[in-house]
Amino acid sequence: MAEAENTAPNTGGDSSRRDFLIYGTGAVAAVGAALAVWPFIDSMNPAADTLALASTEVDISAVEVGQAITITWRGKPVFIRHRTEENIEEARAVDVAELRDPQTDEERVLKPEWLVMIGICTHLGCIPLGQKEGEPKGEFGGWFCPCHGSNYDTSGRIRRGPAPLNLVIPPYEFLEDTMIKIG
């Protein structure tokens, strides 16, 4: 007599086990692929030394009224000037409608006596003079770019010359009365 074929219905035990193995294998493969790709994705993050430059704290307690200091932030010079009452009055007396890049002095400073700005001319990227004692400050008592003659006032606003914009104000805040965080 010939062997009888197994005609018993499939209860799904093999099928559900097969599905489990397929899904389990797929999950392990996905995790493995993610782990293999992660070092490449992580390498696109900024280096630790770059992140350290993202912000800087500056102690301004030693800066006398009328003095200015220059610090470096993100590879750029940042001018910090402790303005005199005369500087503040000159900056506030300007008719904003006459400016090429209209900004009031109040829009450019957090505290009137402290001006913080990036010291790069907005024309061709030169560093304006006027930060050190004895340097020419231009016609408006602020900064003067000798390369092409841009003149900035005591608030860092362009007043004469080819520069199209005011000197840039970086993001900053006062942590204390004598401590500024830039960035």
Results as ranks from 00 to 15, higher is better:
Asn87Gly: 08
Asn87Glu: 11
Ile88Asn: 05
Glu90Ser: 08
Ala91Lys: 01
Ala93Ile: 04
Val94Arg: 02
Val94Leu: 01
Asp95Phe: 10
Val96Arg: 11
Val96Lys: 12
Ala97Pro: 06
Glu98His: 04
Glu98Phe: 07
Arg100Asp: 09
Asp101Trp: 03
Asp101Phe: 09
Pro102His: 11
Gln103Gly: 10
Gln103Glu: 14
Gln103Ser: 13
Thr104Asp: 15
Asp105His: 13
Asp105Phe: 15
Glu106Ile: 02
Glu107Phe: 02
Arg108Tyr: 11
Val109Gly: 07
Leu110Asn: 07
Lys111Trp: 01
Pro112Tyr: 03
Glu113Ile: 03
Trp114Val: 12
Trp114Pro: 02
Trp114Glu: 02
Val116Gln: 00
Gly119Val: 03
Gly119Ser: 14
Gly119Cys: 11
Ile120Ser: 01
Cys121Glu: 00
Cys121Lys: 02
Thr122Leu: 06
Thr122Glu: 14
Leu124Met: 13
Gly125Arg: 06
Gly125Tyr: 00
Cys126Ser: 05
Leu129Glu: 11
Gln131Thr: 14
Lys132Arg: 12
Lys132Ala: 15
Lys132Gln: 11
Glu133Trp: 11
Gly134Val: 03
Lys137Val: 14
Lys137Thr: 15
Lys137Arg: 14
Gly138Phe: 01
Gly138Arg: 02
Gly138His: 00
Gly141Glu: 03
Gly141Thr: 06
Gly141Gln: 01
Gly142Leu: 01
Gly142Glu: 00
Trp143Pro: 05
Phe144Ala: 09
Cys145Asn: 01
His148Asp: 07
Gly149Ile: 00
Gly149Phe: 10
Gly149Leu: 08
Gly149Val: 10
Tyr152Thr: 13
Asp153Gly: 07
Asp153Leu: 04
Ser155Pro: 12
